[in-house]
Each structure stands twice: as structure tokens, then as C-alpha cells.
Amino acid sequence: MKIRWSRTILLLTPATLLAAMLFVYPVFGVLSLTVHDGTSFTGEPIRQVFNSQLSIIVLQRTFVTAATVTLICLLMGYPMAYFMAGLSPRKRVLATYLILLPFWISVLIRTYTWIILLGREGILNKALVAIGLTAEPIQLLYTPFAVHIGMVQILLPIVILTCLTSILDVERDLVKAARILGATPAQAFWKVLFPLSVSGAATGGIICFILCLGFFVTPTLLGGRTSLLIANLIDLQVHKTLKWDLAAVMASAMLAATFTCLLAYWMLTRKRAEFATGGLAR
């Protein structure tokens, strides 16, 4: 049933006002801060960021960390999803619940537990010493290692679930056909299932990468001074050095990266429906 124009506008106005005042307008404000100092256009903030060694290093580090974490998540997540796809539907639901369980705990608390687990007096160090792998407790906390562990723990469920969907989307008959035509299970996997599900897994990777870019809590709590990411730098520039224009440039860089990823995501998903079924489009 179509509704009248006046009613549509009435229904949309409150939500649109909220989004416009608290989202669109402020975000455009940040974008404009990068090229406009309030009275006239300027290239100063962008120039300053490019001349600042710290900003460049942090930007680089953020992208490298995001890429590494995404890669780890995909490598760990795909086999998990493959295993889950082979389960009976009932068991699969149970497995999905297990995977999603940590999702219900706030990121803050999940990160916090790693402080206890990875500390000098922490459980992991005690275990390592007890087995005799190291004589002295080793420094785990406040290292890039800890940041990576914390981020993977938070993001892995998302990647597992997107991989699972993409594997389940593949037309089962195609794998069966390959087997009938004489392919070994390994060949059927590498030549049929994997190529057909990899683009779906890639969309999971893109989401993971976007989320990585914005990480704030994990690098602050688990990383040392050498693990600051963009979000931390923005926080510092706003609250400590009061350089809002530089913070705005960093935030805009993040936005640009996010949109680029979303574009890639959109292009991947648009092609996927026909791709995963290998032309057997329903």
C-alpha cells in the first residue's frame, strides 16, 4: 500500500532531523575543517599532517595493522567456517551461538581481560614459566602482539560468519558434479568450492578492515606508546595538543578509507549472486 506524500514527509522528518543535526552536519564540519580555517580556504592542516613524522607513522601503522589483523582473521576464520558448513543444521546453530557468545560482552571488558591474561604476572606468563619455555616472564602486554591478539579476538566472529554465509551460498550440486566427474575431495575444494566462496570471504575481510581502522580501546589498553593508531592520535590531538584541524585531517583520511572499502564491498556483492552459483542463477 502506498502512502500519501504529506504523510511520508511527516514520518521521515523526525529521524531525518536527528541524522542531519547530529550526523551529516557535524561530519561535514569535520571534512570542511581540513581545507577551511573558518574564514578562508587553506591547505595548511593537510600540509602539517604530511610534514609531521608522527602522523605519517601512525597512518601507516593503522593501515598495516588493519591489513595484518584482517589477514589473520581470514586465515583463521575460513577453516572455521568450512568446518561449520559441514555440520548438521542443528549443530551449526549451536556452533554459531558459541562463536557469537563473546560478541555480547562489551569490547572494553573483552580487552580488559587480556590485560589480566597477558600481564607479567598473568596467566599466560605463569603457564609459559611452568612448562619451562621461558625462565623469566616475557613482555607480552603493551606490545603490538597484544594489540593484534585483542583485535583478532574481537573481529574473528564477524569474519567467520561472513565466510560461513559465502560457503553455504555456493551451489552444493557444483561440488557434487566435480566429485562425480572424478575430482578428489581436495581438488573439488580447491577448484570449485574455494574459488566460488572466496569473494564472499573477501566481503567479510573488507568489513573487518573497516572496523580495524577505527579501533581505539584495544590499542590504548593493550599497546604501548608504539602501538597508537589513528583513533588514539585523534583523541590526543583533541584533548592534549588541541590541534583540531589536524585531528580533522586524520578523521577525513579515515572516512576516505572507509568509503573506498565500502565501494569495493558494493562492487563485490553486486557481482556475487550470479558468481557463487557459477551461472546456475536461480
Binding site: 561530519v27 573497516i210 581505539f216 583523541d235 583540531w244
Partner: peptide
């Protein structure tokens, strides 16, 4: 939901 929170945080803080 998708835009990094810190970007929204900065934007809201300024306004």
C-alpha cells in the same frame, strides 16, 4: 553503524 566512532565523536564534540 559503519563510520568509525572516533570520527563521529570528533564531529559531535566540535558542534
Amino acid at each position: 553503524l559503519i563510520i568509525p566512532s572516533v570520527v563521529i565523536a570528533l564531529a559531535l564534540y566540535i558542534v
